[in-house]
Amino acid sequence: MKKASIGNPFISSPYVVWSAIFIIVPLLMVAYYSFTDANGNFTFSNIAALANYKEIFLTSIGYAAVATLISLLIAYPLAYFMTKTKLSTQGTLMMLVMLPMWMNFLIRTYSWITILANTGLINTFLGKLGIGPLQLINTPAAVILGMIYNYLPYMILPIYSVMSKLDNSLLEAAGDLGSNALSKLSRVILPLSMPGVISGITMVFVPSVSTFYISQKLGGGKNMLIGDVIEMQFQSSYNYNLGAALSLVLMVLILICVAVMNRFADDDGGVII
C-alpha cells in the first residue's frame, strides 16, 4: 500500500535553511577559527598549542567519569526502589526529583558554598563537636560533588522510565524458573534497563566534562577544567582561535564518547528524555 503523506516536504525548507545557517555553519566556523590566526591566515599553531592542555583535558575527563559513575551508583538503586512504591507515590517522587532542576543552576551550585565553606554549615556543626575545620570547598571532591548534585536527575529519569515499563511477568517467569533475587537483577532487570543506563551516562557525562561554572565556584580556581580554559579564551583573554581549537577537540571527544555509548544501546538508539 502506498504510504499517504500529510504535507508537502517543501514546507520544511525554512527550518532546513535555519539549521544550515545556525547549526552547520557555526560548526564550520569553529573549524575555520581553529586553523587560522588572528589575522585570518592559515596556521597549525592553535592545534600545536593544544599539547599544553593535555593535563587539563585528562583531569576534566577523570572528574566527569567519576561523577558519572557515582551518579549511576546512586541513581540505579533509587530508580529500582521507586518502581517498588505505589503508583501515586511514584508520580510524586518523580516530581520531587525533577523539581530542583527548575531552580537556577547557578544559584543551586552557589548555595553549596554556604554548606561547604570553611565557616560553612558543615564546618560550624563539626566545630561544635570539636572536629575540624575540614577543607571541603575548593577541592576536587567539591567539584565532583557539584557535578553529581546538578546532573543526578538526568541519570535517575531515564533509568526510572525504562524500569517502570519493565514487564513484571518476566520477573515472575524468572522466579518460576528458579532465579533468586540476585540473578533476577543481573539476568533480567540489568540487561533490560541498559538503554536507560546508557542515556543516563551520556546525559551526565557531557555536561560534566564541559562545565566551567561548577569548577569556578566549588574548585576555587585551583581545579581548572577544560570548560574554564575555553571560557577564558572567549571572555577574558580574547584568543578566539585557541578557544575554537579547544572547543573543536572537546566536541570531537564527546562525539566519539556518544558514538561509543550508542554502540552499546543497539536498541532504537533514541535518547530518552
Partner: peptide, 9 residues
C-alpha cells in the same frame, strides 16, 4: 511545520 515536512520526505 518542519516536523510535518520532514515526515513527508
Amino acid at each position: 511545520v518542519a516536523a510535518v515536512g520532514i515526515l513527508g520526505y
